[in-house]
């Protein structure tokens, strides 16, 4: 069973995604506080991280940077309602390739398709 970590400050988003992804056969952990997610993160635990961008305390890009320090190879998808994510990402990480952006709102089936596509990449 693939393990997914969802970090989003909206409890309704994490709660509904957890249920939805569990029904599709994933093992899901969630956090609403990115700092607590970072504190509790253990490398090699998750197959993929689904991260919101606009969060209090620490935004998704900062979270991405900190997680990459702990686990360079972990797969991360940004899950965002923001329209300007690509340009913003470029400003913060000019030398990094954008790996995976998934735009809200999205159906569970489409989300699962994105996740599976990302998981299938080497």
């Amino acid at each position: 069973m693939k393990r997914i970590l969802v970090v989003d400050d909206e409890p309704d988003i994490t709660s509904s995604l957890k249920n939805g992804l569990q029904q599709k056969g994933f093992d899901v952990d969630t956090y609403n506080d990115p700092l607590k997610a970072l504190e509790g993160f253990k490398p090699e635990t998750y197959d993929l991280l689904l991260i919101d961008i606009r969060m209090p305390k620490m935004n998704g890009f900062e979270f991405y940077r900190e997680i990459k320090k702990k686990s360079e190879n972990v797969k991360i998808c940004f899950f965002t309602a923001f329209e300007v994510y690509y340009e913003e990402f470029r400003k913060v990480f000019p030398n990094l390739e954008v790996k995976c952006f998934i735009r809200k709102p999205i159906t569970i089936n489409d989300l699962v398709a994105h996740i599976n596509m990302e998981l299938s990449k080497n």
Partner: peptide
């Protein structure tokens, strides 16, 4: 951008809960 974000967040929740 902010208004669009504020709209899409509850829409995402409504969409997923409706699917559930």
């Amino acid at each position: 951008n902010i208004a669009s974000h504020e709209m899409k967040t509850p829409i995402q929740a409504i969409l997923t809960y409706s699917e559930l």
